[in-house]
Simulated scan of single mutants.
Amino acid sequence: MIIIIVLILSLLISLYTDIKNRKILNTVTFPTLIFSFLYHIWTNGFDGFLFSGKGFLTGLCLLIIPYILGGMGAGDVKLMAAIGALMGTSFVFYSFIYTALIGGVIALLLIIKTNGFRNTIKSFFFNVVFLRSNLGSMILAKNKESSISFPYGVAIVLGTLCTLVWGGL
């Protein structure tokens, strides 16, 4: 029960700070990590350490590539790692699946809202019809004026809450 309380408290604080300041604070993720390891070691000894460690590494590895590519902040990665340390490998994996689905829906809605969807489709078909070879540059272009971003912590929180309520897919 204490695990669920710590999880929900960490998620709510992270949700608030990510929406307000676009940051997930270390003062939330690090104490959650420390509590996770200490709690699981206290209750299950070395097996608890392994449980938290595997969850931590799974959460970290799931988001490290998007972070390296510049698609999200370090706070998002640390939050997912803290969720893994607290709840374990299976839980963080399902949270990641829900998070990716929710994040995709949010991104699609933002693209449609800003009329970028129509422009992206037009540009894609233009490149295909005229056999232009810059499809990769069209997709990977980093134009600050046309880029759309949102606090991904929102998707992480919603995905984790979905896992908490519904469990695995």
Rank of each mutant, 00 (worst) to 15 (best):
I3V: 14
I4L: 10
V6N: 02
L7Q: 05
I8A: 11
I13F: 07
S14F: 06
Y16Q: 01
D18Q: 06
D18L: 05
N21K: 12
R22Q: 13
N26L: 07
T27N: 12
T29A: 01
F30N: 07
F30A: 00
P31Y: 01
T32Y: 00
L33G: 03
I34V: 13
S36P: 03
S36A: 15
F37N: 05
I41E: 02
I41F: 11
N44R: 15
F46M: 12
F49W: 10
L50P: 04
L57Q: 09
T58M: 13
G59I: 09
L60F: 15
C61S: 15
L62S: 11
P66Q: 01
P66K: 03
P66V: 02
I68E: 07
I68C: 06
G73W: 08
K78H: 12
K78T: 06
A82M: 04
I83G: 01
I83M: 02
G84T: 09
G88N: 03
V92Q: 03
F96R: 00
Y98W: 02
Y98C: 05
I106T: 07
I106D: 01
A107H: 08
A107T: 12
L110D: 02
K113F: 12
N115S: 12
F117G: 11
R118N: 14
S123V: 09
S123Q: 11
F125Y: 11
F126T: 14
F126E: 14
L131P: 06
R132D: 09
R132W: 06
G136D: 02
M138V: 13
A141I: 14
N143F: 07
S146L: 15
S146G: 12
I148F: 08
I148S: 09
F150H: 05
P151F: 00
P151G: 01
G153L: 04
G153E: 01
L158E: 02
T160C: 04
G168V: 14
G168F: 15
G168E: 13
L169Q: 10
L169T: 13
